[in-house]
């Protein structure tokens, strides 16, 4: 009996230790408790002169419906590549939702493409974002869309015009609800 208790205590300590380490690692990697060291998010987008047609993008969403970017032609589409463990991706997610809330009446769509994670992980993260995303969360478990879209680092965001062409790009986190970005997106609808 005393041996069982001792084994239980050792096991319990191991679990506590791993849990503590995981929380610490998540804090470092996600930058949750690292706020004083995080670089500021900017609001500048790069104009893509003569941007070609947006590459293919056909993935399932949280409801397991297939979303195809081709079906959104005629709308301005913001395509954001991200993951929950990517610090700037987490930081910009709330601003993407505020952008969506401010522009969806103009027919703007946001497709947030998660790389390599499952629905449970993403769903759990969404609950921690304020405001919680209501736009399409798409899932790319093997990251195969990254090559088509020439993404080299997360987050990367593209803005697609109503003709289905790439108009703007942002590498790294942005404040998507900044008036400068809001105006760029709204101007593309005209």
């Amino acid at each position: 009996m005393s041996r069982n208790l001792s084994e239980y205590n050792v096991q319990s300590k191991k679990i506590t230790c791993l849990l503590t380490l995981y929380i610490a690692a998540t804090s470092i990697v996600t930058g949750v408790s690292n706020a004083e060291q995080l670089p500021p998010l900017t609001h500048k987008l790069t104009v893509i002169d003569g941007g070609g047609q947006a590459p293919k993008l056909e993935l399932h969403n949280l409801d397991e419906d297939i979303i195809n970017i081709k079906d959104l032609k005629g709308k301005v589409v913001v395509v954001n590549f991200w993951a929950t463990w990517c610090p700037p991706c987490r930081r910009e997610m709330g601003s993407l939702e505020r952008l969506y809330q401010s522009t969806k009446h103009k027919g703007i769509e946001i497709l947030a493409v998660n790389i390599g994670e499952d629905i449970d992980t993403v769903f759990s993260f969404m609950g921690s974002v304020d405001p919680s995303p209501s736009f399409h969360m798409l899932f790319d478990p093997e990251g195969s869309s990254m090559e088509d879209w020439k993404v080299r680092g997360l987050p990367t965001t593209y803005i697609i015009d109503t003709n289905g062409k790439i108009a703007y790009r942002a590498v790294g986190g942005r404040e998507f609800d900044h008036p400068d970005i809001l105006n760029i997106v709204l101007n593309l609808t005209k």
Binding site: R152, G153, V171
Partner: peptide, 16 residues
């Protein structure tokens, strides 16, 4: 951290 990348001025960046 990306093995290769291009950053435009005005705030393009990565963290990895």
């Amino acid at each position: 951290f990306p093995p290769e990348q291009v950053y435009q001025p005005g705030g393009d960046w990565n963290q990895g």
